[in-house]
Design a protein around this nucleic acid. Structure first.
Length: 548
RNA sequence: GGACCCGUAGCCUAGCAGGAUAGGGCGUGGGCCUCCUAAGCCCAAGGUCGCGGGUUCAAAUCCCGCCGGGUCCGCCA
């Protein structure tokens, strides 16, 4: 509905309706700063320019009034806008917010090496990618998600070696794999002659040696089993798990190499080398021993992606920036559609960066367990069943973890802090879940008392209600911004502000105790808020609880 | 050394196609449950928006330089 308001403002401003100068404001429902721009170009006073513009304007559509103040042109929405906002939310329910973007989108995310369990760095990737996929889906796209299984790297050969030397313990599979992988790395330091075996495994795997191939696939699948359990608990979903080695197996890596070769850019000096303009570092496609490198397989994978999708999104750690820019450049050369890459910065521990190889990490499983324990403590004294407590604690814990990662802009470094991770007193997912539960509770009671009619009236709105409705109207607008920029934290910020608006309203204005007309009006508003919070939480993969 | 990212109160963070008193939260101090869930709400203190220049009527936001932190610069992925 807010998008409609913007359209109306554009219409009112006519020639001055440049969208770049229309923005949200704390002083109005919308404002335009076009007068400042014109003042700059013409050398006039912005105040006077704004006054002159406003003189010639007539409000229309959802806009009730236009004012010029200090160069700003302020717009206010009318009561019809408030009513239509609430009505369309109540009508559309879970579909409220849906946009009409069209096309097929592939989102690849997480794609952690299957040499151990997911750690909190992978969680950032998984949550970001999963939220982006949810947002794009709500925006109208046909979305598919991929986990790219990096089964061909050196680290997998070391994992294989670890299995040969130590086997796997009976821990959760991904943790068992990590233990042997870590031990194998220690062993490699002590006995450098084992390097030969590592290389042999890599060579045999790439040449599809039957025994090594089968065993490697089993090891990787075993690790993946545990990883999938973790992802499921995190409420992160992948439609497909794609094996890197399949692109070797089906010949598409060779095809890509041929394509590049035809472009006459490959130097063959034993190894296959491409020197890209503007890059200080050359790209190696093939080693002297004939095996391919990651980038060769990645090119094949992206060539495949480009055939089926209109928009391709990759979520990657910032350490992949060089690789990604080289990949993009090579894709450009062979005329293949390029992906949009969403980078996120590192999650480190107070004692430094994490490393699976060195066994220095906080696993996602450990994080989920500890956060849940903490959530359970808060529920101890509540008069609800143990089963309910467990379900609530689980939803609160997963929500808190997801929210903590999605809330901060991806380009910010995160230093993981246990104290912060376990603190529910902060404004976090549980704040939004609690607000949602509050709304549900009022509606539940209303139903119990036989007060099921809802009837929102624009003219009954007080200050807090009006503010709340205006913010409710912004949900599709915020979704659009998040989908365009691939920045899910807009949604997190939005839900916090909406919760705050609702809690202010809740404190000052009783719902169930007022006379009928006002009660029906407020109940409608409570229900509309409930719906938007629910839809918003679902965009972030957080369970909207009805009781807490 | 080069390239990229970050630097906003004691701590975490939003704002960064320039614009109205720099928003939140944690922590600190003080209030609010005979009333729809206090995982809530209100008030207060706390800010050279890393530093120095520049552009502009206007800079947290754009440009340049510096400082601090991170990442990358493998025939690893």
């Amino acid at each position: 509905m807010f998008l409609k308001l913007i359209e109306d403002v554009k219409k009112i401003l006519k020639d001055f309706g440049d969208e770049r100068y229309i923005r949200e404001s704390e002083h109005a429902d919308l404002c335009s700063t076009i007068a400042f721009k014109i003042a700059k170009d013409t050398g006039k006073d912005a105040k006077i320019v704004a006054d002159e513009i406003v003189e010639g304007l007539t409000p229309l559509g959802y806009v009730s009034s236009v004012h010029s103040i200090n160069g700003y042109i302020n717009f206010f929405a009318n009561e019809e806008f408030l009513e239509d906002t609430v009505k369309s939310i109540l009508k559309d329910q879970e579909n409220y917010g849906k946009l009409n973007f069209k096309g097929k989108v592939l989102v690849e995310h997480t794609s952690a090496n299957p040499d151990g369990p997911l750690h909190i760095g992978h969680v950032r990737n998984a949550v970001l990618g999963d939220c982006i996929a949810r947002i794009l889906k709500k925006a109208g796209y046909d979305v598919l998600t991929h986990y790219y299984i990096n089964d061909m790297g050196r680290q997998m050969a070391v994992t294989y070696l670890g299995y040969e030397l130590f086997g796997f313990s009976d821990k959760k599979s991904d943790h068992a794999v990590a233990d042997s992988y870590i031990k194998a790395n220690v062993e490699l330091e002590k006995r450098p002659e084992l390097e030969k075996r590592v290389e042999e495994i890599m060579l045999k795997y790439e040449s599809l040696n039957e025994e090594v191939f089968e065993k490697m696939r089993n090891i990787v699948s075993f690790a993946l089993e545990g990883i999938k359990q973790t992802l499921e608990r995190l409420n992160v979903w992948h439609d497909e798990f794609v094996w890197e080695s399949d692109f070797v197996k089906n010949g598409s890596v060779q095809e890509i190499l041929k394509k590049l070769d035809e472009k006459k850019i490959v130097e063959k000096d034993g190894a296959w080398i491409v020197r890209l303009e503007g890059f200080e570092k050359e790209v190696i496609l093939k080693r002297e021993n004939g095996t391919t490198l990651y980038i060769a397989r990645d090119l094949a994978y992206h060539s495949w992606k480009s055939k089926f999708f209109d928009r391709i999104v990759n979520v990657l750690g910032a350490d992949h920036k060089l690789h990604a820019s080289q990949l993009l450049k090579l894709l450009e050369i062979i005329e293949v559609k390029k992906p949009e890459v969403v980078f996120f910065e590192f999650v480190s521990l107070p004692e430094g960066r994490m490393s699976t190889r060195k066994g220095r990490y906080v696993s996602a499983d450990e994080l989920m367990e500890k956060v849940k324990e903490e959530a359970l403590k808060l529920l101890e004294s509540r008069d609800i069943s143990q089963k309910e407590k467990d379900e609530i604690a689980e939803a609160v814990a997963i929500g808190a973890i997801r929210f903590d990662f999605v809330k901060v802009a991806p380009e910010k470094h995160i230093t993981f802090d246990w104290h912060q991770a376990l603190d529910f007193e902060r404004q976090t997912a549980s704040y939004i879940q609690y607000t949602h539960a509050r709304a549900c509770s009022i509606l539940r009671k209303a139903l119990e008392y036989g007060m099921q009619e809802l009837d929102f009236k624009g003219d009954l709105c007080n200050k807090e209600e009006r503010k709340l409705v205006i913010n409710l109207s912004k949900f599709p607008y915020q979704l659009m911004r998040a989908a365009k920029d691939l920045r899910p934290h807009y949604i997190a910020e939005y839900l916090l502000s909406l919760s705050s608006n609702f809690n202010e309203f809740y404190r000052l204005h009783p719902v169930l105790k007022c006379e009928k007309e006002l009660r029906m009006h407020r109940l409608a508003l409570v229900d509309a808020t409930r719906i938007v919070l629910k839809n918003g939480l679902e965009l972030l993969g957080i369970k909207p609880l009805e009781k807490m």
